[in-house]
């Protein structure tokens, strides 16, 4: 492909996906550079999860092209499954298994990658290695999910709302882990609706609404580009949240 698969870990062009009469993704295009942490931001129902699941090969798009690590799902499914690390929104791992049993299961699916003990050390869950998943806290479960995404030593990691529902300490701990993967040279695509998360973790973000990209750039560039209305009294400098609200509006999204 002319886009150059070395420079881009993920290329998405003109993606469309409709569920019955709801248009979830409406001509979305995005490119993720190798080695960067890219954020998909958007309100609920903007099409983030549908987009990421199409990229993960779990959902078929109605139209559009997806190229992951220079390959397509149609021709290289087995190869891609070995190379990707995936963490889904709302997956509940089996409550009755222990941490180490869960990781050993996931590790068995991959040809290469860290040992189970290395993965446990990577996400700092060693003190819970023999605890049942059902007895873990939300943050510990999320770190285990992250470890499950890493046991195949992936080149590209997809994280769908990795910190949703966690308390501030657990979120910060998870940010630290994700920063470490970034430092280790992994490419990361994450979705979030926490603006602070995107500001801290992401090199570039795409703001998505109604299934399209409505803004794209580094968090700094986006914050510089928005003229805040003067009537808005603010005690702080422009944040990504201001950009987000200015672009997507103030009305509530129910789903």
């Amino acid at each position: 492909m002319p886009s150059g698969s070395d420079a881009h870990a993920l290329v998405v062009r003109n993606l469309r996906k409709t569920y019955k009469d709801v248009v979830a993704v409406d001509g979305l295009s995005v490119e993720v550079r190798t080695g960067e942490c890219f954020g998909l931001l958007g309100p609920n129902g903007a099409g983030k999860t549908t987009t990421i699941e199409i990229c993960e090969g779990l959902t078929e798009p109605d139209s559009g092209d997806v190229e992951v690590l220079g390959r397509t799902w149609r021709s290289d499914t087995a190869w891609l499954r070995q190379k990707l690390g995936i963490q889904l929104q709302e997956t509940q791992l089996s409550d009755k298994l222990t941490v180490v049993e869960t990781l050993r299961l996931f590790r068995s699916f991959y040809q290469q990658g860290p040992t189970v003990d290395e993965a446990i050390a990577l996400v700092q869950i060693g003190e819970k290695r023999n605890a049942r998943v059902g007895d873990l806290s939300g943050g510990q479960k999320q770190r285990l999910a992250l470890a499950c995404a890493l046991v195949g030593d992936p080149e590209l990691i997809f994280l769908d709302e990795p910190t949703t529902g966690l308390d501030p300490q657990a979120r910060r701990q998870l940010w630290e882990l994700i920063s470490q993967f970034k430092a280790a040279g992994k490419t990361i695509l994450l979705t979030t609706h926490y603006m602070d998360e995107a500001e801290i973790l992401c090199d570039r973000v795409a703001i998505v609404d109604h299934g399209r990209v409505i803004a794209l750039g580094s968090p700094d560039a986006l914050m510089g580009s928005i003229e805040m209305p003067p009537k808005e009294p603010r005690a702080h400098a422009t944040t990504l949240e201001d950009v987000f609200v200015a672009l997507t509006g103030r009305h509530l999204r129910d789903d």
Partner: peptide
């Protein structure tokens, strides 16, 4: 959603 998570692996 564990089935979906499992088929996201090889």
């Amino acid at each position: 959603k564990l089935t979906k998570r499992l088929i996201a692996t090889p």
